[in-house]
């Protein structure tokens, strides 16, 4: 019957709308469900996953020594040309020439945090850090030198 169908239409439609309104109304009156994170304010309590890939860093120990031998495996592994390694020849105490890094240049602006360089590194010299606030006013600041001045390769790392 036409009228019955019509009324069923109206009632069914209104019920479905009211159901939706009940759901949104529930959230309106339950502020505990709010999931907003107040980002710059909660920096202190911000927990990042330990595997989060923010930038490539090179670990230096207390003696200002790192594990990079300058083998350029990371440079080859990188798909974007993010890493550039400049090597030099050091004189060992025995008087032999030894290859070592002069500068480990890391272009953060090119990096996509794919982790291939870290995977490729045979000595575990570089790793991914959790820092993610990279914005700067000068693009040149994104080109970083990872080995600290005066650092040298750790003894026994080949």
């Amino acid at each position: 019957m036409f009228l019955k169908e019509y009324i069923k239409d109206v009632v069914g439609g209104v019920t479905s709308l009211l159901k939706g309104m009940r759901k949104t109304g529930y959230y309106f009156f339950h502020p505990k469900e709010i999931i907003t994170e107040q980002y710059p304010d909660n920096r202190a309590t911000l927990k990042l996953a330990e595997r989060f890939r923010g930038e490539v860093v090179m670990a230096h120990d207390a003696n200002n020594e790192h594990a990079c031998t300058g083998c350029t495996a990371c440079e080859l592994a990188c798909p974007n040309g993010t890493i550039k390694i400049i090597t030099k020849f050091d004189m060992t105490p025995e008087g032999k020439k030894k290859k070592a890094i002069d500068t480990f240049i890391y272009h953060l602006e090119l990096c996509t945090m794919c982790n291939l360089c870290v995977e490729a590194c045979p000595t575990g010299a570089i790793s991914m850090a959790q820092n993610f606030e990279h914005s700067v006013y000068d693009r040149n600041k994104l080109t970083k030198k990872l080995n600290k001045p005066g650092s040298k390769v750790r003894e026994g790392v080949e």
């Binding site: 999931i35 990042l48 996953a49 595997r51 989060f52 890939r53 996509t112 945090m113 794919c114 982790n115 291939l116 991914m128």
Partner: peptide, 18 residues
């Protein structure tokens, strides 16, 4: 968000995990 959190924890990134 829960899924991306799981991804971040295991894969190290949220969207382009590689």
């Amino acid at each position: 968000e829960l899924i991306t959190d799981i991804m971040e924890e295991t894969c190290g990134a949220r969207l382009t995990m590689n």
